[in-house]
Design a protein around this nucleic acid. Structure first.
Lengths: 153, 153
DNA sequence: TGACTCATGTCAGTATTCTGACATAGATTG
DNA sequence: CAATCTATGTCAGAATACTGACATGAGTCA
């Protein structure tokens, strides 16, 4: 009504709102992780390893939504500082299974408390049904975005 | 059941799913904008200016979810290449109102077509009601994340 | 008026992530 | 068996975004 462009209206765009929500979540997580000297990707990596021990660099990268090159930089730092360990040789193929050290596990525990608080705050004010709706809807968006029409389906 | 950690379960975490959806959207947008030689932030800046002409650098930064320093670097490049124009002196205060040039407008039109296709693909398979739910739920998340309990209130 | 606070534009340096490239291990295929 | 394809780890350089800092203009308040 305020325009006749056929473009994307930021005020009503779900894409824009998704970006806004993601940005707000990231900012909130950075705020609670900063005092622990930990970045969001750093935390994501440790959390992935806690839940799925033995993930390779490439698998961690996909799980944290960064490139394997970026994850490699992080893993080298984490290994140097004693938070994770990797075997010197790959047991099979080239993939090096990574594991948390006791130090890494302790470090993660602090962070998890902080991050869980953020997640609970985000969920505050939402009913159980709304949380289910949110889950289903976000998964629908992801599915639709993944199947690229140019890949000939 | 697969664990007794009291942590965040990635499989059922709305935060993780939000990040995944946002990552998928960003990847899809990068894919269609790359052939046009445009980044997501670049596009966001032009789209903001089309809908709200005269925004300042700081306002554009907030709208594109980056720092004003990052947006300043982008604006200088866009101004140098003739996509936007800024007055040499601030009409009031220090804020420089930015506007699209005809070249910038033409450049944006191409991008808008591509981005709208991505947004429509993301919405594919969602009913009108689900889109309304998504809108309301995302806004609820943003609101909850913004009001920081440590800010008193 | 003068001190103070706040928002802005901008410079400089740092950190993080990305793209490009290469070599290698395993799987697939003829 | 040989060729090809795919996935992986890693190095190097470029692009992007960030933090820190400073000066300036406008509003607030005593």
């Amino acid at each position: 009504m305020s325009q006749d462009r056929t473009g994307v209206d930021l005020e009503t765009s779900l894409g824009y709102l998704l970006k806004e929500a993601s940005s707000a979540l990231r900012t909130a997580m950075e705020a609670v992780l900063r005092p622990l000297g930990m970045s969001v990707t750093h935390y994501s990596c440790l959390e992935l390893l806690a839940q799925r021990p033995g993930l390779s660099n490439s698998e961690l990268a996909r799980g944290a939504f960064v490139t394997r090159q970026s994850m490699n930089v992080l893993l080298q730092a984490l290994e140097r500082d004693g938070y994770v360990s990797r075997p010197g040789e790959a047991p099979v193929g080239k993939a090096l299974p990574t594991r948390l050290t006791p130090l890494g596990r302790r470090s993660l525990e602090e962070a998890t408390v902080a991050v869980r608080a953020v997640e609970l705050r985000m969920l505050g004010g939402m009913t159980e049904d709304e949380q289910s709706d949110a889950f289903r809807i976000l998964q629908s968006m992801i599915r639709s975005l993944r199947n690229d029409p140019r890949n000939g389906d």
